[in-house]
């Protein structure tokens, strides 16, 4: 619930990128061996599911409770949680929608702003890097401090509490996602393949050509690296920013209300909703990344 990604100064990202690419390209399994690859994929999906089902069974039969020393009150049974979700589906959906709007709008604005910052930093490296350093410092401030500040600052934006709360929440998410994206975008725009720029120069390519034909394409995998961090991050940020918002709506607010009122089963229904939202968005991202970057590896 804090800025999970935290500072990723340029150096870090490259390592992460290298790692993910190593991960995906899997040099030891040439594409020729399709069948083996499929089997790999199957187990990648199957193992976690089997494990999950096992945990669920242990949870429902309360073996998990005995291991943890918790009771069915603090860790309610899955059956009860699902009943609550079924009983309150419209309300949960309404809250989930409010949270999704905040998370996605913030993610969109933050990522666009971040990319823009990255571009500026790449075009004017002398000033840009300093700017990025300053921006990354924002990540060291806990959200629980940022959210109330922004909530107070947006008070005059609208007389409608819902509108101004929404703005405050979106700003929190924007700020967080912007930082991650700007650093990665800068990295992607400047970390070129050795000699590729020299090659472009030898073709007498113009600066704009180098930018659009070399730098921008180069930044796409980095863009996805940033999104891998900021997509789950945006959901978590949205949840926390809701704690402090004036207008009472959203999954995060419901979690807090119910935990404070000791309604753990209901709180868990919302926690489950939050997790599902995060997983769904992450799955969409992975699918998009997989299909878009396929030909590039």
């Amino acid at each position: 619930m804090n800025l999970r990604s935290s500072m990723n100064p340029p150096e870090e990202i490259s390592v992460r990128i290298a790692a993910t690419q190593q991960d995906v390209s899997n040099p030891e399994a040439p594409a020729a061996d399709r069948r083996r690859f499929d089997a790999e994929n199957l187990t990648t999906l199957l193992y976690p599911i089997v494990f999950g089902v096992l945990i669920l069974i242990l949870w429902q039969t309360q073996v998990l409770h005995r291991i943890l020393g918790a009771d069915t009150f603090t860790l309610p049974l899955p059956g009860r949680i699902l009943t609550i979700i079924a009983d309150n589906a419209p309300e949960i959906l309404m809250n989930a929608r409010a949270t999704a709007i905040v998370a996605l709008t913030g993610l969109l604005f933050g990522s666009m702003l971040g990319y823009l910052l990255g571009v500026i930093a790449a075009v004017f490296p002398k000033w840009g890097i300093g700017g990025l350093t300053v921006v990354s410092a924002f990540n060291a401030i806990p959200i629980i401090a940022v959210a109330p500040i922004l909530n107070n600052l947006t008070k005059d934006f609208s007389r409608d509490a819902d509108t101004r709360s929404m703005l405050a929440k979106i700003l929190v998410v924007t700020l967080m996602t912007m930082v991650v994206m700007s650093i990665n975008a800068y990295r992607g725009l400047t970390e070129l393949k050795p000699y590729s720029e020299d090659l472009m120069k030898s073709y007498a390519a113009r600066r704009t050509d180098v930018f659009f034909k070399l730098r921008v394409p180069n930044s796409v995998p980095f863009l996805f690296t940033a999104l891998r961090v900021s997509v789950p991050g945006s959901v978590i940020c949205a949840l926390v920013s809701e704690y402090f918002a004036e207008y009472i709506v959203g999954v995060g607010r419901q979690i807090r209300e119910n935990i404070v009122l000791a309604q753990y089963a209901t709180a868990w229904a919302y926690i489950l909703t939050a997790c599902l939202m995060g997983i769904l968005l992450y799955a969409i991202l992975l699918a998009a990344e997989g299909s878009l970057l396929k030909g590039r590896r």
Partner: peptide, 26 residues
């Protein structure tokens, strides 16, 4: 790795408010 990796992600997504009472109970 296959089992743990997705769950490590999911654990990160559980708000600490949900986690705290369980950890406290333990």
């Amino acid at each position: 790795e296959k089992i743990a990796f997705p769950y490590l992600m999911i654990i990160q997504m559980i708000p600490i408010l949900g986690m705290a009472p369980i950890v406290l109970a333990v």
